[in-house]
Design a protein around this nucleic acid. Structure first.
Lengths: 231, 231
DNA sequence: TCCCAAGTACTCGAAATCGAGTATTCGTTC
DNA sequence: GAACGAATACTCGATTTCGAGTACTTGGGA
């Protein structure tokens, strides 16, 4: 909603980590990893250091000391400021309370489905089903492990949510594949016919759309009402 | 999987558009809008022009002419190249066939749930439920309209998929709210107790974790086995 | 006929992003 | 005690990203 001065989700994780205690950037990164937060928030060293710098510039965190541990390089330890705490709680409120539009890659792909012949699409989606099913299994395995250790759900709700999303995608893709394979997807007859024309007669898709009646006949009335430009 | 020379999904849409016919960038943008592709792929003018330049630099598209229509500014018309077509089909295959890890904002928020007291979290999530329900309604409305116009499903599968995702999120969040409200979420007793200590005794969360037995007693055995560092 | 909003067609630069590289040190094995 | 891989702790800079701004034009109403 509001545009944050530092918008990278990693900055949110940094603020969250420093709310607990002061740390140096690398320590933040290892903490995020041991706690598995890097499964939910993309962690990248390049971003980490630039994000820390940006947070400092905006007064959300401040360098409190530079320590030298043995012969290791100097590390700058940061602490969160009051402004930083405020930013963190505000950010968390927004993340939980207000959904933000996010664009998934599959959505982009589906938007161009008709660019491939039906059989090809079905094949690819089946490949995706395999991968998704494997992912679901893997997440469920982790959950079973955490349950066996009696590690409270509260600390892995994010993973539960992720599982819900992957399962939803899996379910949807499976349904879509079936619809394509059984020709039950409205418009797939038109789709297949179009591809037969393209492949057997060497007509380009652009030509098909210029004069649909010529190639498809009156079989697809919506083509007249919805020329590609006026969805 | 492979790192593309031009990775912005908008570049994919540009290639998709130019597969159909040559166009100038602004025309691509209006076409994406009239076809509703901008609902599935983030469209931003700044990105559009830089992405077109990058595509040209990499030989995926080429400028074929610059036309001047009346007094309007000159426009450069681009056409896709053979390399561009190959890139497009390869990209589409990947988008459909191989799921890529994507990080949702809510996941990031859920990862820091314990930073807020249970009641606050429940409130925020209820707010989210409202917004999500409204979104579901809106998408369903669009679908009903397209159905009434007999516009084939094939041209809006991406929206169907989006609906599936939003519904999954809605379902999950509703369940989570109930679990928090009814205290059925494992660990929420610990969560609440922690917040009572913080709010009534003014103890900081960091102190709680340093000596959990002192504050929580032996009530939460997993705390010994799973200190915050060793999830 | 004049005005204004909407549409057309970009440009610009500040900031973010990222992966790969670097240099050191520690622990372990042979 | 030498060697080597893993861990530590960053740095660098080439791209990418984006939003906001600009400047013109067209159409429709008062």
């Amino acid at each position: 909603m509001v545009k944050r001065k530092v918008a990278n989700p990693l900055a949110f994780a940094v603020l969250g980590s420093l709310s607990e205690r002061q740390m140096h950037p690398y320590e933040i990164s290892t903490m995020l990893k041991t706690r598995g937060k890097d499964m939910s928030i993309k962690l990248n060293y390049g971003s980490l250091y630039s994000v820390v710098a940006a947070l400092e510039k905006n007064g959300y965190i401040e360098a409190v000391e530079t320590v030298r541990d043995g012969n290791r390089p100097e590390r700058t330890v940061y602490a969160i400021t009051e402004a930083g705490r405020a930013e963190f709680t505000d950010w968390l409120s927004e993340l939980l309370g207000s959904p933000e539009r996010e664009f998934s890659q599959l959505e982009a792909g589906l938007a161009y489905l008709p660019a491939f012949p039906p059989a090809r699409v079905a094949e690819l989606l089946e490949q995706r089903v395999q991968a998704l099913a494997a992912e679901v299994k893997q997440i469920e395995g982790t959950h079973a492990y955490m349950e066996s250790k009696q590690f409270p759900r509260i600390f892995w709700v994010e993973s539960e949510f992720r599982l819900a999303l992957v399962q939803a995608e899996l379910t949807y893709v499976r349904r879509l594949v079936r619809a394509i394979r059984t020709d039950a997807l409205e418009g797939s007859d038109f789709w297949r016919k179009g591809y037969e024309l393209v492949e057997k007669l060497g007509i380009t898709p652009a030509e098909l759309f210029k004069d649909p009646v010529k190639y498809f006949g009156e079989e697809f009335p919506w083509l007249q009402e919805f020329p590609p430009e006026t969805q």
